[in-house]
């Protein structure tokens, strides 16, 4: 097991370097120099002071020197200061990350609670009305434009019915609330974002569970269990489900980037204080340090997610370790 974990961690190193190459590369190739961003608005800036700025930021050096300098600071998670307000980019992310994690973890839990039963029962009752109905339902979620659904639900629950707040994560007078009301206030703000995130990502997990179950049901040891005369429910839940769910651990890690990526449009609509909106605003404002930080951190999160998923998988399924 230890050997497997060490090998798995070593394997991350080339990926890490690749990730930094891509973020750095995209930024470096971007048209419009970063300096222009700061100086364009100010006509008084002379070309000498531009050159001086370039020197400070190191833009006058060849790309590999710039990359190396950037990488050196990346190792200690220093992504430089935001062009917009001069605050460290990593600090801005640290402020937004908890909200994004909260949203994604709650959504993942909801996805699991709903998608697993759908997948399992669809497989047991393959081609039944339930199976077909659920297929259409999960694909509706997969096909619906997130921002459109968000708009409609905001209109319905926020404006027409007035049941739920439509933006942000906290009410304006949040700080005056008692602890219990703070939780309730938070929950009310989270209902729509969590529901929408979960509904639109049900398809992956439920379809995967379904096909995994279909595979397992046909295995010899399941036939054997039936032949022994075990009741159907026992065969399904004790023998089949347990094995069908093993590979699903890995899906967890893989679903992270799409969950984070889904946030870009929809955190913007909900004015949700997460990383997605920070990334979108930074891209639109060409705030290079923040953009690079958001991209790198999102990719790092995925790397860590995949690592944890793989280790869990190897832990529950010994066959993996010796491959």
């Amino acid at each position: 097991m230890l050997v497997y974990i060490i090998r798995r961690i070593l394997y991350i190193i080339p990926l890490l370097i690749g990730i930094t190459f891509i973020t750095f590369g995209v930024m470096h190739l971007a048209p419009g120099k970063a300096i222009d961003q700061i100086t364009d608005m100010n006509i008084k800036v002379s070309s000498e002071s531009k050159a001086r700025l370039a020197e400070i930021y190191g833009f006058d050096k060849p790309w590999y020197v710039q990359y190396f300098n950037w990488f050196k600071r990346f190792v200690i998670l220093d992504f430089g200061e935001s062009f917009k307000d001069g605050r460290p980019a990593i600090k801005k992310i640290a402020e937004r990350l908890p909200a994004s994690l909260l949203l994604n973890i709650l959504s993942l839990i909801l996805i699991f609670i709903v998608a697993l039963p759908i997948g399992i029962f669809s497989a047991i009752k393959r081609n039944s009305l339930f199976d077909k109905g659920m297929t259409v339902l999960v694909f509706l979620g997969f096909s619906v434009p997130t921002f459109w659904l968000a708009l409609l639900l905001m209109l319905l629950f926020g404006l027409k019915l007035g049941w739920l707040p439509i933006s942000g994560l906290r009410s304006l007078n949040y700080s005056e609330f008692s602890f219990i009301f703070k939780i309730i206030d938070l929950a009310r703000h989270l209902v729509l974002p969590v529901f929408i995130t979960a509904f639109t990502s049900l398809a992956g997990l439920s379809r995967y569970t379904r096909s995994s179950m279909l595979d397992i049901i046909r295995q010899d040891y399941i036939k054997m269990a039936y032949a022994k005369g075990l009741p159907k429910s026992r065969v399904i839940f004790r023998h089949a489900v347990k094995n069908a769910l093993l590979p699903i651990v890995t899906i967890l890690g893989l679903s992270l980037p799409s969950l984070i990526g889904g946030g870009f449009i929809f955190e913007t609509i909900f004015a949700y204080p997460g990383m997605g909106r920070l990334g979108y605003e930074a891209i639109m404002a060409r705030d290079y340090p923040v953009v690079m930080a958001v991209g790198t951190i999102a990719a790092l999160l995925t790397l860590v997610g995949n690592l944890l998923a793989d280790i869990t998988y190897a832990y529950v399924d010994p066959r993996i370790r010796y491959k």
Binding site: P257, S258, F264, R286, G295, A298, L303
Partner: peptide
């Protein structure tokens, strides 16, 4: 290369390139 690409949220990469 595939692994690296899959680490990034696709929409982020697309947004980034298109915006530039």
């Amino acid at each position: 290369l595939v692994d690296i690409m899959l680490c990034f949220p696709t929409f982020f990469l697309i947004l980034l390139v298109i915006a530039f």
